[in-house]
């Protein structure tokens, strides 16, 4: 009897945590998008007001940001500073590809960021300013989209996790 109860609790815990995990994806996505917005604003200051060279600017921003986003920017700067370094597009997309392991962004977020990276540092100050304006707008849009998805799916996955656990328990016993 006791063992049965324990098993029931384990099953419900597992399925709830699975549900939570799926639900948290939506929360973390919003968190990452917001961090990106802050980081790109910092990068904008470094580039437009201090005229810091891009690899140094990325490193500075990367260092002062703890999250995965910081790790990603630091990664790009490392790629650029490498002796046999590649172009900015390559460095950016290589780091972005690796970041899929630790950032919880959706595919369309990645598209936006990828396009932004290709334009970074290749033009004069005026165009760079426009580029930053555009990326902030786009990230705002992505953030809104992520919010909507979170509102729709977060609770659903959480309850789904718990309820499916419950269903299994009822069917089994």
């Amino acid at each position: 009897m006791f063992l049965k109860l324990l098993l029931n609790i384990v099953i419900i815990c597992c399925s709830s945590s699975l549900g939570n995990k799926l639900a948290n994806r939506y929360v973390y996505r919003i968190r990452d998008i917001r961090t990106l917005q802050i980081c790109f604003a910092k990068l904008e200051t470094e580039i437009l007001y201090y005229s810091t060279f891009l690899p140094d600017a990325l490193e500075n921003v990367g260092k002062t940001t703890k999250d995965g986003v910081g790790r990603f920017l630091f990664d790009v700067s490392k790629n650029l500073k490498d002796k046999n370094s590649s172009s900015i597009e390559e460095s950016w997309s290589m780091a972005l590809e690796r970041s899929r392991e630790y950032l919880k962004l959706a595919d369309d977020d990645y598209d936006v960021i990828e396009r932004f990276g290709c334009q970074l540092g290749v033009a004069d100050r005026t165009s760079q300013r426009q580029l930053f304006e555009i990326i902030q707008l786009q990230l705002k849009k992505q953030e809104k989209k992520a919010e909507e998805e979170r509102a729709r799916y977060e609770n659903m996955y959480r309850s789904l996790g718990f309820l499916s656990g419950l269903t299994i328990v009822i069917i089994l016993f």
């Binding site: 580039i47 005229s51 810091t52 060279f53 891009l54 172009s87 970074l120 540092g121 290749v122 004069d124």
Partner: peptide, 13 residues
């Protein structure tokens, strides 16, 4: 051009 500008055309206007 990318290398001599250190990927930062904006800094060398």
């Amino acid at each position: 051009l990318q290398l001599i500008s250190n990927y930062s055309i904006y800094a060398l206007e």
